[in-house]
Write a protein that binds this DNA or RNA. Structure first.
Length: 497
RNA sequence: GCCGCCUUAGCUCAGUUGGUUAGAGCGCUAGAUUGUGGAUCUAGAGGUCACUUGUUCGAAUCAAGUAGGCGGUACCA
């Protein structure tokens, strides 16, 4: 019987790819978000919040079919049977908002947005199905100055968060240049669209697979170490070498366009992209950001909707992981120009560009760098309950501390004094307030400084001495409670009040 | 999706060629100490050995299937 009931109970388990975030991390993240917000505001962006889910077609996702209703996104059906989906980024909802409110918005429209996004994909280390992004976008201008500004915004943000200059790089490329290269490689035209996609994906893997791996993917295909085979693009040797010449990063001091010009001379779109890159480089240089923002032909990014410049924010430092192996954090954000997103709704092309920061990933990186925001705050002062029939007295003491702006709580459990001390210890309380009948009769309270006490405990070995010494505990007049507690706090946390 | 490895207490893991009541460390609870967090000692709680089916006199151990986890790979608008 009991077993039957047990079998019917739901498992207390977190769905995969999701996670609980506890106090210290939330505090650290809030501090991060505040820093990011400050930079974005400083650049003149306005905040905007849109809902967590939208109509599926508004997100640019086709109506889920009944076989696979959740390909990549989490979807649900409204009571009128229309499909809704959780947002997978901040950009698609922005496009919807701009299209819906186009006439009354100032153009160009500049907004920032932060919040969770959801992706229904296989989770991996550092990859979750819910994570937080922080985006800035400028809608309604073709000017590459807007793109250059995004790169500078990204650089300033990383620095504001404590990533030292030289430990990150904003890399810039241009989809038009990529198109031009592929044109030169002989895979222009509608019939080669799939092949171009394969090429772009291959280039995107340069980091991980190296040049040899990319070449395999451009040609016949590649067999990875787990035995899985990835079909290649099937390009000719000439085409592969053209792309290879393009992708190999220009050495320091060399003109990054030297290779490009030869390859792109017959491609109109390629020339256009190259000109845009040159302009961005000039703007970046004029602003004094050349050491942090660099042209890099291997940057590809989310392929679907980008139409011009694309950028990626990369952390370049290495950290030794738990297993002793070096860990690189790599990309913590990216973005680019998407001139056709709003047109999906209105039919009218509205040029736009934006940058998106992966907050959780960046937070993990900052922690590794030792630059993570301090998430630990002192626990509350705990007022112990010595006589259960005097609860109102303890409640009054607690309220007095709270009124004085001191974080405090009365012990609300039912255990004895020893357990209450352990509770206070576990909460990280700086001190506890003790008032039994002895103290009450004298109009006093005992304050025990737990931080001081822990230090004193190190030099006490036997229990008898420990008990008799009552380290860091003292008696004060009840009326002086707030003042005396404040003194203890000031001793341990001089910067706070 | 594909390939590989893994699954024994809250956590980290032992568990011999299949053989009685499945163990350890840490953690947790309580006591020694009727009102004191540490240390020490003692005791206690906590397990359908992931699940199902099979082989066997007998399965945590062997086999198959399923689920979950980890890693790689693909996809990631």
């Amino acid at each position: 019987m009991a077993k039957k009931i047990k079998d019917n109970r739901p498992g207390a388990r977190l769905p995969k790819g999701l996670r609980d975030i506890e106090a210290a991390e939330i505090r650290a993240q809030n501090a991060m978000l505040a820093s990011i917000r400050k930079v974005y505001e400083n650049y003149g962006f306005e905040p905007l919040e849109t809902p967590a889910f939208e109509y599926t077609d508004a997100l640019g996702k086709f109506l889920p079919d009944s076989d696979r209703p959740n390909e990549g996104v989490f979807s649900l059906q409204d009571e009128d049977e229309q499909w809704l989906s959780l947002r997978y980024d901040m950009t698609a909802p922005l496009a919807r908002y701009v299209a819906e409110n186009f006439d009354r918005l100032p153009k160009p429209f500049r907004r920032y947005a932060t919040g969770p996004v959801w992706r229904n994909e296989k989770p991996g280390p550092g990859r979750f199905r819910q994570f937080t992004q922080f985006d800035a976008d400028t809608v309604g201008t073709e000017s590459v100055a807007a793109d250059a500004e995004m790169c500078m915004l990204a650089a300033d943000t990383l620095e504001a968060l404590g990533v030292p200059r030289g430990n990150f790089l904003i890399k810039v490329n241009n989809r038009k240049v990529l198109d031009g290269i592929m044109e030169a490689a002989g895979i222009a035209g509608e019939e080669n669209a799939g092949r171009r996609l394969t090429v772009l994906r291959a280039i995107d893997k340069l980091d991980r697979l190296g040049l040899a791996g990319v070449e395999q993917l451009l040609g016949e295909g590649r067999l990875d170490e787990s035995g899985d085979y990835t079909k290649g693009a099937g390009l000719s040797k000439d085409a592969i070498s053209a792309i290879r010449a393009f992708v190999v990063p220009a050495k320091d001091g060399q003109d990054p366009f030297a290779e490009l010009d030869g390859l792109l001379k017959n491609s109109e779109i390629g020339q256009e992209g190259r000109a845009e890159l040159a302009q961005i480089a000039e703007l970046i240089s004029a602003a004094g950001y050349s050491d942090r923002v660099k042209i890099d032909p291997s940057v590809v990014r989310g392929l679907e909707y980008y139409t011009g410049p694309v950028f990626e924010a990369e952390l370049t430092f290495e950290v030794t992981g738990d297993d002793g192996k070096p860990v690189r954090f790599g990309s913590v954000g990216g973005g680019g120009r998407y001139d056709d997103l709003v047109a999906r709704f209105t039919g009218k092309t509205v040029p736009a560009t934006g940058f998106s920061l992966g907050v959780s990933r960046l937070q993990a990186a900052l922690n590794a760098l030792g630059r993570g925001a301090e998430g630990d705050v002192p626990g509350p002062v705990v007022v112990l309950v010595m006589d259960r029939d005097r609860l109102s007295d303890y409640q009054a003491l607690t309220q007095r501390l709270r009124s004085a702006g001191i974080r405090a709580e009365m012990y609300l459990g039912t255990s004895g004094m020893k357990a209450q001390m352990k509770y206070a210890d576990k909460r990280g309380s700086p001190c506890v307030v003790i008032q039994g009948s002895d103290e009450r009769e004298k109009g006093e309270v005992q304050i025990k400084d737990l931080i001081e006490g822990a230090l004193a405990a190190q030099s006490i070995a036997d229990n008898k001495e420990w008990k008799e010494a009552r380290p860091a505990q003292f008696s004060v007049s009840e009326v002086a409670l707030e003042e005396e507690v404040r003194k203890v706090l000031a001793r341990h946390f001089p910067q706070s009040d």
